[in-house]
Write a protein that binds this DNA or RNA. Structure first.
Lengths: 106, 106
DNA sequence: CACTCACTTGCCAAATTGGAAAGTAAGTGC
DNA sequence: GCACTTACTTTCCAATTTGGCAAGTGAGTG
């Protein structure tokens, strides 16, 4: 008898991180700047959130060189993809009111 | 060029309130205790969140009498239902990665 | 050598949340 | 009539979280 809310992933739930993870879920990997621009967030904020996601094991950070410039490539790990999928599933369950027992109808 | 994250409703996004609103969205109205039990939250916490939802204009609180005992009936307002629906829509848009432009593929 | 790029980190200050416990308003039992 | 229970409500408080701003770092450019 657990409410699906218990299956929401706190790391993923925050709007900014949800957006970051969702953006990464749609591709294999993306550059820092690309994510920053699509999610519309500052460098500082993204950097911090990426650290959080990395510590959670959801994102892998890869320093690469494009042309001659340094770039940071971000990608979801396998666990990150799984966690995102489960989070979205829980969200859907809650949203569709699947755990309701017997309302009153007052 | 707004990220759908901007359309997430902060009042509704918090896990507890999302669960409360979702529970109410599935019915016409429900008693305080029913919501408290399905969402698995303390009286105190629910009371506080209901106040927040009421101030936002999303929930209507109705004191009723069942038998001889006082009960509190909760129901989403029209705006509450609309806001919930739009929030869920935004969530879906983000989750499906609809706003991606051109990832790098690094 | 000064300057730009691409982030990263430190330092806050504001806002949110929940638990514990006291408070309130009615109704119930003896 | 008085003590007790029900059904919430409110207060106090302490832990987190988050973002902005600004300084910092390391590599590349003219």
């Amino acid at each position: 008898m657990n409410h699906p809310r218990d299956r929401l992933d706190e790391v993923i739930h925050a709007p900014v991180r949800f957006s970051i993870v969702a953006a990464l879920a749609a591709v294999e990997s993306a550059e820092f700047r690309f994510v920053r621009d699509t999610v519309e967030i500052t460098d500082s904020a993204l950097s911090k959130q990426v650290t959080v996601l990395e510590k959670a094991g959801y994102v892998r950070v890869h320093k690469i060189t494009v042309g001659r410039r340094a770039r940071t490539s971000l990608a979801l790990t396998k666990e990150g993809r799984t966690a995102f999928a489960e989070h979205v599933r829980a969200l859907g369950e809650i949203a569709s009111g699947e755990t309701l027992r017997t309302p009153d109808g007052a």
